[in-house]
Design a protein around this nucleic acid. Structure first.
Ligand code: FES
Ligand code: FES
Lengths: 143, 143
DNA sequence: CATAAATAATACCTTCAGGTATTAATATTT
DNA sequence: AAATATTAATACCTGAAGGTATTATTTATG
């Protein structure tokens, strides 16, 4: 995958929460919707809370709610918080920052791809995803 | 990284070999040129031999030579042999084959990116890379 | 207050890509 | 034939991402 499995989970979680913004939800409810391993999902929720994307409230009738409006959460922000943006700067042949040393035949086309990914992820918000139809419940592989 | 470190190594090895096609080379010489951990490089050479990209000859004055002309080795082939092409079919949100279920706001732009990567890698040969200037000797990170 | 239902924190386990070590097989040179 | 230089095969080690288990903390409600 281009982004890590965990980042993908994070985005899917936020997307689901954005679908009924304002309404708090629980990890268990999200688990039922998203089919992400429950324990791992819970741990990831904590991470997202620490990173300031959501707010957790403990205790009976507790749950999670978006900390910011969904249209202010950009994909690039989520990716950066969970795994960093390094992938987007790496050359397809492994040059750490190929802008400084364009040494492969993929460089031009690759530069375009990279630019597109960066532009898209920093202009697409969680709300955009939430508005798009369909629910992602598929099991995923790591490839 | 988009492709795995190992795949990237493989492409770099083949590129180096293509620069003096017809001339056999040894793992040690390639190690000096590419700065890939020697033992790992040797093991990878064996893999590439098994996959039919290069031919190894044992014994004193042995070495490796390309099994096919460099202009007949496509990047897509190398990627497929070393790590598979799954990444190119995966949705950015982890849907295994998003052509069947386009469920995210990235779908359109992501489809374009994927198409470009696939087209480019299956029309670019090792010879194309070999002709491009510069040598890749950078240490790489995995991100 | 006691209980239940939720998040929070922490430590541990598992898997796999990447990397290392060792030994075997093969071919050339002397 | 012995020594040497190479690839081939195999098994093992390591670190990080993904996943699991356990316990602590907080809050609402009977
Ligand atoms: S040097 Fe390879 S993509 Fe830039
Ligand atoms: S469904 Fe996400 S890119 Fe196709």
């Amino acid at each position: 995958m281009i982004i890590s499995k965990t980042t993908s989970y994070a985005i899917r979680i936020l997307q689901a929460m954005a679908r009924n913004e304002k309404e708090a939800t629980t990890a268990t409810i999200l688990f039922r919707q998203l089919k992400i391993k429950e324990r791992y999902l819970k741990r990831l929720m904590t991470t997202l809370a620490k990173q300031g994307f959501i707010k957790g409230k403990r205790g009976r009738s507790g749950g999670f709610i978006l900390a910011r409006p969904a249209n202010q959460i950009f994909l690039s922000g989520v990716i950066e918080a969970v795994e960093g943006l390094e992938s987007f700067n790496a050359c397809i042949l492994g040059v750490t920052d190929c802008r400084l040393s364009p040494v492969c035949a993929m460089h031009d086309v690759w530069g375009e791809i990279r630019k597109t990914m960066l532009n898209t992820s920093s202009s697409t918000t969680i709300q955009d995803l939430a508005k798009s139809p369909g629910n992602i419940q598929t099991e995923m592989s790591n490839k």
